[in-house]
């Protein structure tokens, strides 16, 4: 359900030492990439709790980009390998949820790779644009599936209305 007007919302996680600096460099070098990504800086990609990814997707994000230092260059030694393994497991789990695993991407970027950061971000935004909105919880509702069902209530969003129960 790609539309010309769909602007994906992407949450990007960067590590303090490499990929955030890459993003910074992309900025100071005035490299252009679409404004669809909101960056959140962590100390290290190893701090990327998988909860953050599910939280992002269940709060309206259409995709999540995890970034960190190149393998072997993590400032906390091996933590980006942990991020790598989490990333693989997150993608497999999302697949089980019927969510396209491509909505989560992993990018290694050194502090010198501003251009790589910008181009990877731009291409991810286009990939998500072609996947279409995630639409988390959009239609489900608590609505009865029968045609004559007329008491809409939300399953995935907080309940908004209260059914009257005779006293």
């Amino acid at each position: 359900m790609t539309t010309d007007t769909f602007e994906p919302t992407i949450i990007g996680f960067t590590c303090n030492w490499c990929s955030y600096r890459a993003a910074d460099l992309a900025g100071t070098a005035r490299l252009k990439y679409p404004p669809n990504i909101r960056l959140i800086r962590l100390m290290c990609s190893g701090r990327l709790d998988p909860t953050f990814v599910f939280k992002a997707l269940s709060s309206g994000a259409d995709g999540v980009m995890i970034t960190g230092c190149h393998p072997g260059e993590c400032h906390y030694l091996e933590q980006n390998y942990k991020a790598l393994r989490r990333f693989h497991l997150i993608r497999r789990t999302l697949k089980g949820f019927g969510v396209e695993p491509e909505r989560v991407k992993l990018v290694w970027a050194s502090a010198a790779e501003g251009a790589k950061f910008a181009s990877e971000t731009a291409s991810f935004i286009e990939e998500i644009r072609s996947l279409g909105p995630l639409n988390w919880g959009k239609s489900g509702g608590g609505r009865p599936t029968t045609e004559d069902g007329d008491s809409p209530s939300s399953v995935l969003r907080p309940q908004s209305e209260t059914e009257e129960v005779p006293a």
Partner: peptide, 14 residues
């Protein structure tokens, strides 16, 4: 009870 609460087919097709 999870953050996603359901699979995409369930929230898309209802």
């Amino acid at each position: 009870g999870s953050l996603l609460k359901a699979g995409k087919p369930a929230w898309e097709k209802g």
